[in-house]
Each structure stands twice: as C-alpha cells, then as structure tokens.
Design a binder for these strands. Sequence first.
RNA 1: GUGCCCGUAGCUCAAUCGGAUAGAGCACCAGCCUUCUAAGCUGGGGGUUACAGGUUCGAUCCCUGUCGGGCACGCCA
Length: 580
Amino acid sequence: MPHFRVHLSQLLQQTATQVLQDNNPPPIEIARTKQANHGDYSCNLAMQLAKTLHKNPREIAQMLIDAMPASEYLDKVEVAGAGFINFFIKNEAKRAYLNHILRQGNRYGASNFGGGEKIQIEFVSANPTGPLHVGHGRGAAFGASLANVLAKAGFAVTREFYVNDAGRQMDILALSTWLRYLELNGVHIPFPENAYQGEYVKDMAKLIYQAHADRYVHQPENLLDGLPESAYEVAVTTDEHLDRLIANAKKILDQDYTYIHHFVLTEQLGDCRNDLMEFGVEFDIWFSEQSLFDNGLVAQAVQLLDEKNHLYRQDGALWFHSTQFGDEKDRVVQRENGQFTYFASDIAYHLNKFERGFSRVINIWGADHHGYIPRVKGALQALEQDPEKLKIALVQFAVLYRDGKKAPMSTRSGEFVTLRELRHEVGDDAARFFYVMRKSDQHLDFDLDLAKSQSNENPVYYVQYAHARICSVLIQWDGDVASLVDADKDLLTTPDELALLQRLIDFPDTVESAAKELAPHLIAFYLRELASEFHSYYNSTHFLVSDIPLMEARLALVTSIRHVLRNGLELLGVSAPEKM
RNA sequence: GUGCCCGUAGCUCAAUCGGAUAGAGCACCAGCCUUCUAAGCUGGGGGUUACAGGUUCGAUCCCUGUCGGGCACGCCA
C-alpha cells in the first residue's frame, strides 16, 4: 500500500527534474491541506521556483501538472491560489488503505523515517539525592514519549539515565543521613540548614539504625573539628562549614563512610527507578558518573583537550577556553584543589556517547540549564566532534494549580510536590497525558483539578472513552475482527467516514513529524482530533445495523480507529482501557 | 546590567520549521438519551497574533527597536 504523501513527493520530484532539466529542484514538500476544497495534499513548489525561473507561479504549476505522469491514486490535480498544486486522492484509494491498517494492527504508524539510525536519548538524570518532583516528571514523560515516537519512526533508540553519583551532592546526602542516624542514637549535632531536610533522610537513617544499631557511631565529638564553638549550638548554613563536616565525617567513618554513601545512593536510585517504572518510564542504561572517574575517562578527556591546546592554567585552576567556541566565558575543568568539576565529567560523558557510535544524541534538560549548552557543544567541537549531532531539548517548568491557585513549591524548604504524590493524586494516565499536552519549550500550567476530574473536561478520558466505546461495540457485535479485511469498504461514503479515513492515513505522518521536531505533543493533539471525529461519527451513525455488508464496512473503519487510538496512546504511555 | 526563551480568543494552548479564510478545549448561551457507554453529540458569539517598523508573491513564524513575563549568568551540580 502506498504512502500517499511519499508517492506524491516522488511523482513531483520526477516531474520537476524533467521539466527543469539542468536546474535541480528544491526539496519537495507535500503538505496536508486545511480545507476540503483544496484537495487532500498540496505543494508549494511552483511558488518557490517562480523567482529562479522568472515565471508566474501559476504557469509553472500548470507546466508541472501537464508533465506529471498519471497516478492510479489520484482523482485530479489542480492549480489554486497563488500557485499551489493541489492533489485530490481517489476515495477508492483511501478506502483500500483501510486493509493496510487492519493488517498492520499494532504496528501501524511505524515508518522507516529513521532508517535504523542509532540514536541515544538521555533524560531525567536527576540527582539521586531525594525523591523526583513534578519537574522531573515532565522530563520523564516527555523523554519517554519522544523515545517511543523515535522508535516508531524507525530509529534504533537507546534510553539512558545519567546517574550523578560522584559529586558533592551525594556527600551532602550521606552526611545528612549520618547526622539523622546519630540523632537516633542520642547524639545531637545541629542539623545544617543547607543539608537535606526531607523526611526521607530520616527514613534512611532509621533503616540503618534498625539494621546496625550503633555500629556507625564513631567519635562523633570530632565531627566539629575545625569549626567555631558556636557550631555546637547553631545550625550551619555556609558551604564551607558543610564541606568541613563532610571532610570530618569521612575521616571519622573511614571505610564506613563508603557504606553510608553506597547505602543512600542505592536507596535513592532504587526509589527513583521504581517511581519511574510505575510511571511507565524505563531505561536501557543507567550510566554512572563515578564510572567515568574510575575508568580514567575524565582525566583522559581533559588531557585530550590539553593536547589540542584548549586548556590553560590560571589562579591554580585548569580552564577550558570555551570562549573560542562561542561561550560567554571560559570554564574551569579542574579546581585549584585538584578536583575535576562536574563540567569535566560531562565532557567525558558526551565524548563517550559519541564514541559509542550514536549518529545522533539527544539530551533533555530543564530550561534552567540553557546556559550550559554552549560550553558542552564547545567542548565537543574542541574534541573534533560534530556538535550538530548533539541536540538539546529544553523542557520548561511545570507549575501546579489547585483550586485555580498556584500550588506552593520550594525544594529548599522541603515543601515540594513529588512526582509520586502527583501520580497518586491524578493517576498515571492523566499525568502522562497532561505532561505532553504542551510543547516542551512552553511553560506548563498543570491543572490538578482538571487532571483529576472524571468528566468530559478531561482530555485523557475523552480519548480513552473513544477507545472504550469501540471495544464495547465490537464485543456486542461478537464477530471475528480479522474477517473485516473482506468487508466492502466502498460502502463508506459519508463525509464523516471519508474524513476519518484521511485522519487515519495521517497517523504515520504525524508520528514522523513528532520524531522530526522532537514534539510528542503532536501525538496528543492528533489523538484528541481523532477521538473528536470518532465521537461525532458515533453519535450520528449506528454501526450495528441489519444491513450486514454496511455494518461490516463501518466496523472495519471503527476497528482501524481503535488500532490508531491504541497505538497513539501507547506512544504516550497512556493505557487504552476497554471499559470505562 | 548581559545572554537565551516566551508574548496568539475572557482562561489554557495549537497552527504540518514562510503558505491559502489563524484553529481546539474550558467558560458562556441554546438544544439532543425508549436505539451500539451522555466520561458523548449539535448549533452560537468571540482576534489589529503585545506594540512600531522592515524583508517578499505571501509573515503568528525571519530581521531591528520598544514594552511585558520567565530563566541563566559559581573553581555548585
């Protein structure tokens, strides 16, 4: 079965090369039309050629049409407006397409757009220092849906979570947990305000306490070494004090520090993984930042930059000359104290991604990281990699609304809404759908009341309901769906039915666009429109009629709609219930 | 202050990377269940696409400026 849009594109390509002779035509773009009287597809090629050919675009369009070979799928081709070429697909061809959908079933919508290209998509990558919050949720939903879309469009997709298990934040979490643990053992040291305040820290301390009692209570009196007397009474708030506490804790605990560190990391990562799994978000690879250090890849990447003369030393630190690659200032890769910065391991990580043979790499970042892009791309360029292969999709913040008011959120005070709370409150389906209803680079107003409402206002139910209705009809019909390929599709003649056919035909193109533009929201919009057209059709037309051939034709259409609804919802990680 | 993103119906958002008469949902008004699920459908009003210029066959989209909002400007991650 032909892909109409591709077919037309080839037809026009062939014609254009012939008509233009030595001039090679610009890329042919076939678009869907908005209005029925413009046909089904249109092309603006003639208008684009008007300038180079010094001719009236309508004239060029007519020339192209006259030279175009006949197509068995076309009813007619017209010149319209300023010089559009409008294509009218035969209704018979659209009807025949239904069998293609029925046979493809859950594969329908797939294409070879990606050509099996290896593509890596890294998302969420939250610090394993606490529960995921609603901001991570958007990255997770967006990334997972996009990955599904890319896979459907023919890319070989690897989903990856970068685990920041090497940095200072992990040390702060380990320290925080140990302090809570000491409290449980009756040792009270003022809890730093800039340590992790959340209840989950106390929970982890409790677990250690329950399993090991006082085993990790070594000389806590030395914990405040090097700190002023006041530290015994007042909670510290500065980074210096916190770092001193960490250093002291490491000294006091020695080997046992590794245990605490490992314990909190495993706990948090496990929690994060479960949370995401329940949300329908899974990864192929959990990539450890620490492993980059352990394998010497960070040192190697920095050395490589040095060999290519992109580093210099100043104030005791090692700087990358990123301004030479469009960054607004140079960046430190190795601190005065010898520690590599987060940026250094990130360079190593991205270099590693490219060395693993991905032809394209997609990072999904929170929009607050946008300033970070030039330095990463700069580093890649400095290492003689093509920065164009790295695409960074920025996801804006999600703001929750309850009762028409902003829900308060602040990580610092520990008063933030976790992803888990959100999922439990509105349900996984609604959460997944709402997160991708907006373009990713737009702020998202997440209306909790709307997401929760089990009513006609809720777009998730609207789409799912269409699916459930179809299931219900098919159950009452009680026939063999596979037999519907034999139905006489020519009995589908109403404007409703023809519009639905075209909508179904559009699905693979929509998936392709969503892949090309990294825009899974297109799927959400498409599904709403398809559901809308279906509901309308459902209300105006009875399917289970006594005229058997007519009934089977309609059931063939409706079954195809069910396939597309299901496949589309699956891309978004939303369930397709058979009953509601 | 500098850089990036954004500004579309009363509200929340689309608009197939420059295309044809800018579209949906919510809200508001008026209707539709003895029939496959009313979590549904039908009809109606709503716009100088923040503002002012520019580029061209053609601009919500590209360029310049102004106004308004968000984010980022660490030897943090």
